[in-house]
Design a protein around this nucleic acid. Structure first.
Lengths: 107, 107
DNA sequence: CAAACGTTCAACTATAAGGTTGAATATAGT
DNA sequence: ACTATATTCAACCTTATAGTTGAACGTTTG
């Protein structure tokens, strides 16, 4: 299991994507993150651990609170992987669009 | 479990990404796909079923052969999802670039 | 038709994932 | 010191995942 597998595994769960969406708006404590969910706080705590394992969040302990911050860097790997297959749908674009796409690729 | 979850789940396994990499070079029969792997043919068959469930491959039966073709469309969803978070590393990149620019000015 | 080939189906095993509840730990407030 | 709050840890349950082996099914070939 390499990093990319861990990142993809982490974001493959809807709840974890929801957590990321929340954290994209700003840092939050665990209880705040858990609030909108049906599941228990413990379940959310586990999801956070998965995200942490994939490097998608960073945790800073402030007293009894854990302040969770989103870290997007690992998503670069995902973007990079997907990028290798973009040509499979770019091929269907018209030549002008392809030209600009190729131009961007060359940069 | 929505589509995106299925697609991410499908590509989260290294063997399935390897299968995709193989199919990106051209269609192949199940046995051909399985050849480079340590695991049994049956295991590969299962992986193909997962990829098929996510819409990442298409199967065309030709006699006793199943000819497998890569379908990239579902990856657009992944690219789209990741795209929403690109600003999180672009911002950092921008600030890093600005830092170096300012640094050069100061010299 | 019989044998070989390509693939899946079925049954099983082992491990991981996602959830629960209850207890433990650490900090904060009175 | 006592109580409430924030979070994790531990144990457990259920279901899913990834793999195995052996049998079945359809197709091709001699």
């Amino acid at each position: 299991m390499n990093d990319l597998s861990a990142v993809l595994g982490a974001i493959s769960h809807p709840s974890r994507r929801a957590i990321i969406a929340r954290l994209a708006k700003g840092t939050a404590r665990v209880t705040e993150i858990a609030a909108p969910f049906e599941m228990s706080l413990n379940a959310v705590s586990k999801h956070l651990k998965v995200l942490e394992g994939a490097g998608l969040i960073h945790r800073e302990k402030q007293g009894r609170d854990h302040v969770i911050e989103f870290r997007a860097e690992p998503l670069k790997q995902v973007a990079g992987w997907v990028h290798e297959y973009e040509r499979f749908w770019n091929e269907h674009l018209d030549s002008l669009e392809s030209y600009f796409i190729e131009k961007r690729k060359r940069k």
